[in-house]
Design a protein around this nucleic acid. Structure first.
Length: 613
RNA sequence: GCCCCUGUAGCUCAACGGACAGAGCAACUGCCUUCUAAGCAGGAGGUUCCGAGUUCGAAUCUCGGCAGGGGCGCCA
């Protein structure tokens, strides 16, 4: 926002160094740690260090300070910069307060929902996430991939990438067939009504069927025989599925649809709109042709019929360390594997969807799988392989241990949501008794989901999360509701102002910002105002950082800091009550700008910004 | 045996190689006849797992340990 001033100053610094024969290192600008004012800062340690390396006998920190002081003199006065100081080797340039405040606030209000949007990058990025297995119910672990992926998609899109959202449900495999078998044999036609009830019911069948098919200790010969008979039936069913048997396929499609209905309902709840659905079953056939190509090109080795088809990745890359190992890409019986299908899928992403960057939001246990996949793509000759990225996230466990669908030990997303809404409603009836039942319900969903979403997104990608209900659904402190509350409080001021101005002027403008008068911020700003404006101005950088690092957590931290600055401001600086008309006008604009940026940040986190709570 | 991730306040987590390592929770002290107290203000809390190295400067980079988690040719 102060590019012009920065350029002028950079030119003066270069001029000074040229005059004095100083080997100026690259100029890096950062913000000044909060000091009640704001500005930008650079340091001369690197420059002094290179002097030292050239043979001058100097103490680097002292010399850096000396250079900073001399440059300060050289720069003199610059428009828009109120004063300059040289401290501890740093050169700090302070912006003139009212000018800075006005620029920031005006820009936010002019850009609105687009404030912080990056310039188009002419690169297409596909984010693959929300890939639960079908025939199961959606649990809290699935929520992590979904929320991380959706937030990341929103961030990179807003940062300027052409973005495609993709989901890749695992709709086939022995686990799916197990459910199909048990349903067909024991439960056909007994399914409950209700999308979620039915989805959860499938999960129960899975747990039961798995127990039936697992060898038990001390099992009797009859039990063993029955178990083996069941297992044979299950495998026969898989064979029939593979052969395209109509009965099995119909049964599979019908039950798959039940899962997808549940999934769609949950995605809808999370405001997630997937652009492209890839099903594992769809890439099964094409993947086999790819294996032939890789064999022909000498990348893969065919050990059939004794062994599978493999790629000796480490060997292909040269005599390095044992890192990528050997990957199996086709079973000896010719059936495809997870990796086979991911290769086929990648090819489709590159060729059909023209994807430049491909992000996979999948848990960390699949790290080796993706490293192998990306290396094979590279060997295969896809330059896009370099921009494939496995966003590996730590998995969510329970205090009593890992979740296990097979054992039926899972925390279902729907159950957490129901509990969240119950808890918010309990708080709401106490805090906002005047709210209508319908509105209260809607707000409860926004706040409950906001709490859960924030608790997941505020943790960095690669960390594990131990899921505890009380923690995930906390409404105090470093939480989603804290940020939502800042938005509500800002809105509350603006709404009150609007009511006032409607009374006074008889205006009927629906958009409150249209009633705001311009403001010069030409008064002595308080530290709270300064800090709030400072945070607002950082939003575009936070967007770019979160996008470049593929880390929604960066945005989560930013949103909290911004809300925190707003709450402090709110408490310390009267707006409507301010006696001074100029200050009142300026602060109203600042509140409107803060509300806007909080909403923009929450949107990138896939969290709703309620008007009341 | 090999590969990846993690180790920071009592707990959960932050911190482009840069200024004094910061938040929340828990515990403690104040603040609601005021624009919403889901809030604000305050103090207290640290050998950044250990040891070397690189650097003017290391929680951050390199190497070596220790501890926890995950993974390693026909599961996904």
């Amino acid at each position: 926002m102060f590019e012009k001033e920065q350029q002028i100053i950079e030119a003066k610094i270069r001029e000074f160094c040229a005059q004095n024969n100083l080997p100026l290192a690259e100029l890096k600008w950062t913000s000044i740690p909060f000091s009640g004012e704001w500005g930008m800062s650079t340091s001369f340690f690197a420059t002094a260090a290179s002097e030292a390396r050239a043979g001058k006998k100097i103490q680097v920190p002292q010399r850096a300070q000396e250079i900073a002081e001399q440059i300060k003199v050289q720069i003199g006065r610059v428009d828009g910069i109120s004063h300059i100081e040289a401290v501890k080797g740093y050169l700090n340039l302070y912006f003139s307060a009212s000018e800075y405040a006005r620029r920031v606030v005006d820009e936010v209000l002019a850009s609105g929902a687009d404030f912080g949007r990056g310039a188009a990058k002419n690169e297409r990025i596909m984010v693959e996430y929300a890939q639960p297995n079908t025939h199961h119910s959606f649990h809290i672990g699935h929520a992590r991939t979904t929320l991380l992926g959706e937030s990341l998609a929103r961030i990179v899109q807003f940062a300027g990438f052409d973005t495609i959202r993709a989901s890749y449900p695992g709709d086939i495999g022995l686990g799916v067939i197990t459910i199909l078998w048990a349903y067909d044999k024991f439960y056909k036609g007994k399914e409950p009504q209700g999308i979620h009830e039915r989805g959860q019911w499938l999960l129960k069948i899975y747990a039961e069927a798995t127990a039936m098919l697992e060898p038990k200790e001390n099992e009797t010969p009859e039990e063993k025989a029955r178990r083996e008979a069941y297992d044979a039936e299950r495998r026969e069913m898989y064979r029939k599925w593979d052969a395209g048997d109509k009965y099995v396929r119909d049964l599979w499609l019908k039950t798959r649809e039940w899962s997808l209905e549940e999934l769609r309902d949950i995605l809808n709840m999370m405001d997630v709109k997937i652009d492209v659905w890839f099903f594992e079953s769809d890439v099964d056939e094409p993947s086999k042709a790819i294996v032939d190509e890789l064999i022909q090109r000498g990348i893969a080795e065919d050990e059939r019929p004794q062994g599978p088809v493999i790629v000796k990745i480490d060997e292909k890359l040269g005599p390095t360390k044992e890192k990528y190992r050997t990957a199996v890409i086709l079973r000896s019986d010719g059936t495809s594997l997870y990796l086979t299908k991911d290769l086929a899928l990648a090819k489709e992403k590159f060729e059909k969807y023209k994807v430049d960057r491909s992000i996979y939001v999948v848990d960390t246990r699949q790290s080796l799988h993706f490293q192998q996949a990306f290396k094979i793509l590279e060997l295969w000759g896809f330059p896009q392989a370099a921009k494939c990225y496995h966003l590996s996230y730590g998995f969510i466990t329970l205090p009593e241990g890992a979740m296990s669908a097979r054992r039926g030990r899972v925390v279902l997303f729907k159950d957490v949501m129901d509990e969240a809404i119950r808890r918010v409603l309990a708080v709401e009836s106490e805090k906002s008794p005047e709210m209508s039942a319908a509105e209260r319900r809607k707000v409860a969903e926004q706040i409950g989901l906001g709490a859960l979403t924030y608790s997941i997104l505020s943790v960095d990608n690669n960390r594990d999360i131990v899921f505890e209900m009380d923690e995930a659904l906390s409404f105090d402190g470093h939480t989603g509701p804290y940020i939502q509350n800042a938005h509500v409080r800002a809105n509350s001021i603006l709404r009150k102002f609007q009511v006032e101005s409607l009374k006074v002027e008889g205006s009927s403008k629906p958009d409150v910002t249209l009633n705001l008068k311009p403001a010069a911020f030409n008064y002595e700003l308080t530290p709270h105002e300064i800090e709030l404006i400072e945070h607002i101005s950082r939003f575009p950088d936070a967007v770019q950082q979160a996008a470049n690092e593929y880390r929604p957590m960066v945005m989560a931290s930013y949103a909290y800091d911004l809300a925190n600055a707003f709450h402090s401001f709110y408490h310390a600086a009267p707006v409507l009550q301010s006696g001074n008309e100029e200050i009142r006008t300026a602060r109203l604009r600042l509140v409107a700008a803060a509300k806007q940026v909080i909403a923009n940040a929450l949107r990138l986190l896939d969290i709703q910004a309620p008007e009341v709570m």
